[in-house]
Design a binder for these strands. Structure first.
Ligand SMILES: [Mn+2]
Ligand SMILES: [Mn+2]
Ligand SMILES: [Zn+2]
Ligand SMILES: [Zn+2]
Lengths: 136, 136
DNA sequence: TACAATTTTGTAATCATTACATAATTGAAT
DNA sequence: ATTCAATTATGTAATGATTACAAAATTGTA
């Protein structure tokens, strides 16, 4: 049962415009934590009039409606993903790939720690990935 | 026994130039996770010729020599700290303050997870802090 | 003093992101 | 179908942190 971008948008109360559908479909098919620019460069191929501002607007809408998550494992650009399950991220400093680590969620969302109300929880690991290690 | 900036630099093999001493002293006294610009704006008061590039160079040197840690809890700027103990960070979305959470380290540094070699481990939480909650 | 190595400075470039005004599209009401 | 307001998309210009790079200053040592 393939997830339909349109249904997901409607369910979250986001009106399913053409561009929003395209961005969400991209995120459903590409689970490699793309940047705004990654999405733009792919979609501009079939939508030549597409504006990068539209990508930023769309992603902002998605994140605010809880449809998509953004995270700052890199210091220069934001990455996005459609993956609501809590999980940690691992960045390989050699090849730049970002891996999911589902077993290391340890999620503190909605808990109260030291009096602080936790709304969001990101675990960012980095080092050398399995692939890169095996090449050496 | 107050930690002496000069001794710390020498121990880590970083030559203790005037500017480096000033930056490290700032970090030793200000445990509020400052940005490069925070440090610059304070030090320019007593060093009017100070260049912001020097701040960036110095912080880069410190991070590379393992003297200082940097982290990306914000999407637009890097924050720095002198605190070698593993701990998590909590960002208040209301007041912008960044708190330390020493009990939630759960550090995976130098471990191998799913074949990946973990060199660095950041835990970034966000929400509404104790102070801001009590004001409501 | 001479000189090479290190450190600092200043300017300009880079690059992701945002601001904002304008244009296009949509969807309901007439 | 037409009108009109609301939403969505576009384009350009600005912002702001960070980096590149070359020149200047400082340091340590012969
Ligand atoms: Mn992920
Ligand atoms: Mn800290
Ligand atoms: Zn790798
Ligand atoms: Zn607060």
């Amino acid at each position: 049962m393939k997830e339909l971008a349109k249904d997901i948008l409607i369910e979250k109360g986001v009106s399913p415009s053409y561009h929003r559908l395209k961005v969400l479909e991209y995120l459903l098919e590409n689970r490699n934590h793309p940047s705004a620019d990654d999405i733009y460069r792919k979609l501009i191929e079939e939508i030549p009039t597409l504006s990068k501002t539209t990508i930023y607007n769309t992603l902002k809408t998605f994140v605010e409606s809880g449809l998509v998550e953004s995270f700052n494992i890199l210091q220069n650009e934001v990455r996005y993903e459609y993956n609501l399950n809590p999980h940690a991220h691992f960045l390989c400093k050699k090849c730049g790939k970002i891996y999911d680590l589902p077993d290391y969620d340890n999620c503190l969302k909605n808990q109260i720690i030291a009096g602080h109300e936790i709304h969001d929880h990101q675990i960012n690991l980095s080092g050398i990935c399995k692939n890169c290690r095996e090449k050496e």
